[in-house]
Design a protein around this nucleic acid. Structure first.
Lengths: 125, 125
DNA sequence: GGAATAGTTAAGCATGGACTTGAGTATTGC
DNA sequence: GCAATACTCAAGTCCATGCTTAACTATTCC
């Protein structure tokens, strides 16, 4: 059982533009919650919720010293998603999805397309 | 202006588990809308909406011949997301996120940390 | 000790998106 | 031509999620 839900939580975290902006900000160095909240036109609490989502799926890490919480990128955080994509790109780039076409092309008999059928193809009707 | 919205639409498409399952199904070969709808316990129309979302962001491609629409994986569809991740993994793996720490360590003046502050760190309060 | 600072939590509202229903269109088989 | 098939579209419901407000806790400065 591969942890399907890990990919799910990472994608749910990344789908929100604000959280991607937070990630980009943190990729330029650590920041406190206040520093992260400041550029966004939203409340402290809202940013905090985003940070919790990012931390819950392992994309960032945070540490509280005194009353200040400092957040930073978790270096390997995107790895599971990168792996997920890699698993799906390799078969796709081998053109397994075109297997049907390839078989049709290598078929010695040309009756793959019956002359009676009018194969008009209307993309995106 | 890099097309920010392309990543956005790909992530929005992938965040839905049903759509990821459809992608996995299509990675094993092309399928018609009916064939795709059959294993999911949902209506034809719902699956169609998922397919439209997947096609709109370039993850799949479809072609209608007669009354049958056949869908297949778009080989390069995940490339923009893979690139997006790669851009963010490289800086993170260079530990740019620890730049602040490195600067503090190399800073000759120790006033970055007042000796009065009691630095107890309580992770995850 | 008391005020200011930094963050935390909970409750509630509002929007967006997934899904359904139901009606409609185009194509195929007889 | 007519019925069945395969899909398409529009409208409406429902629930998850982002955001706000408001009250609360912990820490630091004076």
């Amino acid at each position: 059982m591969l942890n399907y839900s890990e990919i799910d939580s990472i994608l749910r975290a990344l789908v929100e533009p604000t959280r991607r902006q937070i990630l980009d900000r943190l990729s330029r160095g650590p920041a406190t919650v206040s520093q992260l909240a400041e550029p966004f036109g939203m409340t402290f609490a809202a940013v905090l919720q985003h940070l919790q989502a990012l931390e819950a799926c392992g994309l960032i890490r945070s540490e509280k010293i005194g009353r200040v919480r400092t957040c930073r990128i978790e270096p390997g955080g995107l790895a599971p998603l990168a792996d997920w994509i890699a698993e799906r790109r390799i078969p796709a780039e081998r053109h397994l999805d075109r297997l049907g076409e390839i078989l049709a092309e290598t078929d010695p008999s040309p009756k793959g397309q019956s002359p009676k059928k009018n194969q008009q193809k209307d993309e995106q009707t």
